[in-house]
């Protein structure tokens, strides 16, 4: 039987990303474990059991122990962990929310992350996204589920200067989004010569 190698959906784009200038940096984030949490009421007990206070404000995310907790809906969150294996995260989160009537599902294989950094990143994103990305509105801790180009994404802001974002995109859309981002960044990649 042929050996099945674990490959990243964006492996073929790595060289193109590396050639980009710092003003529109795109980097592929390493695989992380992610779990989708459904929970009716969020109280301090849920926070203690999970080890993170789930954000109840719409369009926000908070840092968790070794990952992030992203608001996806009034009763839905995305928890990620860089230190745990997907099964470990799912089991831990499920054990934490099950007694409270909640549920947790491993969705690690669903999305991959792209880190966008640089002074012109906001201009690139604005080409395919109607959300106001000005740091005054979309500062650190903000998140949005929206469309970027034609792909549905979860957008996270990591800085108050608007120069550091993470885009979570479904693996099967990652190639499309990578092409779209490179095309959108094209005008910022050339230094005019005189």
């Amino acid at each position: 039987m042929a050996e099945l190698l674990r490959t990243h959906p964006l492996e073929a784009w790595t060289t193109a990303f590396e050639r980009l200038p710092d003003t529109v940096g795109i980097a592929v984030e390493p695989f992380v474990a992610m779990a989708d949490v459904r929970l009716g009421t969020v109280d301090s007990e849920a926070g203690t059991r999970l080890g993170v206070d789930l954000p109840t404000e719409a369009n926000t995310w908070v840092p968790a122990e070794a990952g992030r907790a992203v608001w996806l809906g009034p009763d839905e969150w995305l928890l990620s962990s860089t230190t745990e294996a997907p099964e470990e995260l799912e089991a831990r989160v499920r054990a934490a929310v099950l007694p409270l009537g909640g549920s947790a599902t491993d969705v690690s294989a669903q999305r991959i992350g792209l880190r966008l950094t640089g002074a012109r990143v906001r201009d690139v994103l604005a080409k395919g996204c109607s959300v106001d990305l000005h740091p005054r509105v979309f500062g650190r801790g903000s998140s949005a589920q929206t469309t970027l180009g034609q792909a549905g994404v979860v957008l996270l802001s990591l800085s108050d200067t608007g120069e550091d974002h993470v885009v979570l995109v479904r693996s099967s859309f990652a190639g499309y989004l990578a092409d779209w981002l490179l095309d959108a960044a094209l005008e910022f990649t050339h230094t005019p010569t005189r």
Binding site: N59, P74, T147, G152
Partner: peptide, 9 residues
């Protein structure tokens, strides 16, 4: 919940 978003969503 989310605020203003594009119609296609």
């Amino acid at each position: 919940w989310c605020g203003p978003r594009e119609e296609v969503e």
